[in-house]
Design a protein around this nucleic acid. Structure first.
Lengths: 214, 214
DNA sequence: ACCAGCGTGTTACTAGCGGTAACCCATACG
DNA sequence: CGTATGGGTTACCGCTAGTAACACGCTGGT
């Protein structure tokens, strides 16, 4: 219980918000992506309308939660990306950091990857896609920034960096998702395999003698 | 119509099934991934329980629909992958085929990418991840097969091929998703950018003179 | 002292979803 | 005839996200 204080205090609303987010975190960790607003409210010891006052709708709460986790994950990834080592080592340790994170908390990861994706905006008429997990988008943009500001890609390099950012993040995500589900190998093997791919081994590998060629 | 009783007559049930799937297709094309069972039943001119008799539950109908579209898409992709050309051209035309497909029917694409993902099995206790769109998994496995049977990857090549299959498909998917939402460039530019990435240009590109290096 | 107002919380509800039980009716078969 | 069986419906359940509308306690102005 919290000693009720005066109203003007700027911290109170934000503190409540944090408490609610932590409760939501606990529920998501326990129930996975099917966590309901009711369950979260109950875990927080309050009722639904309060949640809605704080976060608007389920997507809002999702977003707030996603920002938290994405921030944390991004910090780890940035640390790996900034470590003093040669480029390949950086990429490998970044991949490994990501995979370790999703391995450690698959429930949270699942929740982040599959947002509510309802929202309106779908009935606006000319909506097109615009979905996918915000987490992925953000990771892609971040990586694009890093690549764009550090690697010399010549003219049009900014656009190319963004393409690569989203492409690499997608590769990491899909491979990690598959790996988490089937566990076909050790984490290190996955990391080195993906890095080999990024290092162009597909281009240099020879055709199999017994195959139709590629 | 002959209405032969006894089992065997394969026409009637399967025909109904196809009609229902086509109706579902129409609704999904119109309403996107938020198409409801009610709406699909209405479009088909019947009521919900019939749908459930045919497909079990929503996931079943989703699966049937996904198989249809995935089959079609896979045929296109295989054609591109099998075309007589050098490896890089094949990869480019495969990417382009995929992107053209999602560009042509974004609604269907969205539906396929975000399955129901409910199911029980989440309350079994030790479930772990196991989700993601079946479409992506299937594409990944297919590509893994192609790579594994055509490219010589040395010892452990089968596992590496699977890693690459899922990784490349994920790259294609995420980049396509982002591109479809923001339309930052022409399709051809995206294709060549991704192919450059797969061809190891990240490894060979130099650092920017004005950056911290990578 | 009193009443306005605001923040914080509640109960009780709506609308719509996935899914199902129970009933309905025609047809083909003994 | 009777009856079983397949295609179909109505009417419901339990759940979800989301929303009034009302109730308490605290602050401050007059």
């Amino acid at each position: 219980m919290e000693t009720t204080q005066q109203a003007g205090e700027p911290g109170t609303a934000e503190r409540r918000r944090r408490e609610l987010l932590e409760a939501a975190d606990r529920v998501v960790l326990r129930d996975g992506p099917k966590a309901s607003m009711n369950a979260i409210a109950a875990e927080a010891g309050i009722t639904k309308p309060i949640l809605y006052r704080h976060f608007g709708d389920k997507a809002g709460l999702y977003q707030a939660l996603a920002v938290r986790h994405t921030d944390a994950l991004l910090d780890s990834l940035r640390a790996a990306l900034d470590a003093p080592a040669e480029r390949r080592s950086r990429v490998e340790s970044t991949l490994d950091t990501y995979l370790a994170a999703i391995e450690a908390r698959p429930q949270v990861y699942r929740f982040l990857m599959h947002p509510a994706e309802d929202s309106q905006a779908a009935e606006k008429g000319f909506d097109v896609g615009v979905h996918s997990a915000p987490l992925l988008r953000r990771l892609g943009e971040e990586l694009a920034d890093v690549i764009g500001e550090r690697v010399d890609l010549g003219p049009g390099g900014e656009r190319l960096a963004r393409v690569w950012g989203h492409g690499i993040v997608g590769m990491m995500h899909a491979a990690g998702d598959w790996w988490l589900g089937e566990r076909p190998c050790e984490r290190a093997e996955l990391v080195s395999g993906l890095t080999d791919l990024l290092w162009g081994r597909l281009a240099t590998a020879g055709n199999r003698a017994d195959g139709p060629g590629f």
